[in-house]
Simulated assay, not measured.
Amino acid sequence: MAMIFIGGSHDIVDLPDAIVGRIASIVAAEHGVLVGDAPGADTEVQALLGGHGYEHVGVFCAGDEPRNNLGDWAVYTVPPQPGAHGFAIQAQKDREMVRRANYGLMIWNGTSPDTALNVLRLAMAEKPCVTYDVANGLITTTRDVADWRTMLSRADPEIWDLLATRMTPDERLATTSG
Rank of each mutant, 00 (worst) to 15 (best):
M1N: 04
I4Y: 00
F5I: 03
G7D: 03
G8A: 10
S9I: 02
S9V: 02
S9K: 00
H10D: 01
H10Y: 03
V13A: 04
L15M: 09
P16Y: 04
D17H: 05
A18E: 10
A18M: 03
G21I: 04
A24M: 05
S25K: 13
I26C: 05
A29R: 13
A29F: 06
E30C: 11
E30P: 03
V35S: 01
V35W: 00
G36I: 05
G36Y: 03
A38V: 08
A38K: 01
G40D: 05
G40T: 04
A41P: 05
T43H: 09
Q46V: 12
Q46K: 08
L48F: 09
G50D: 11
G51S: 06
G53S: 10
Y54R: 08
Y54T: 09
E55G: 14
H56N: 15
G58N: 14
F60S: 11
C61W: 02
A62C: 12
G63L: 14
G63C: 12
R67Q: 14
R67L: 13
N69Y: 10
D72H: 13
W73C: 11
A74M: 06
V75D: 09
V75N: 07
Y76N: 10
T77C: 12
Q81D: 15
Q81T: 15
P82M: 08
G83L: 09
A88Q: 13
A91C: 12
Q92S: 15
D94R: 08
E96T: 14
E96A: 14
E96S: 13
M97R: 11
M97D: 09
V98Y: 02
V98M: 02
R99L: 15
N102S: 15
Y103D: 12
Y103M: 13
Y103H: 14
G104W: 01
G104M: 06
I107E: 00
I107G: 01
S112Q: 06
P113Q: 08
A116R: 05
A116F: 04
N118C: 14
L122Q: 03
M124Q: 09
M124H: 04
A125T: 02
E126F: 09
E126C: 11
K127N: 11
P128D: 10
P128Y: 07
C129S: 14
T131Q: 06
T131V: 15
A135C: 11
L138P: 01
I139D: 07
T140A: 07
T142E: 09
T142A: 10
T142G: 03
V145Q: 07
V145C: 08
A146V: 06
W148D: 04
W148Y: 05
R149S: 00
T150P: 00
L152H: 08
L152D: 10
R154E: 06
A155W: 00
D156Y: 00
I159G: 04
L162A: 10
L163A: 04
T168V: 08
E171L: 02
L173E: 08
A174K: 06
T176A: 08
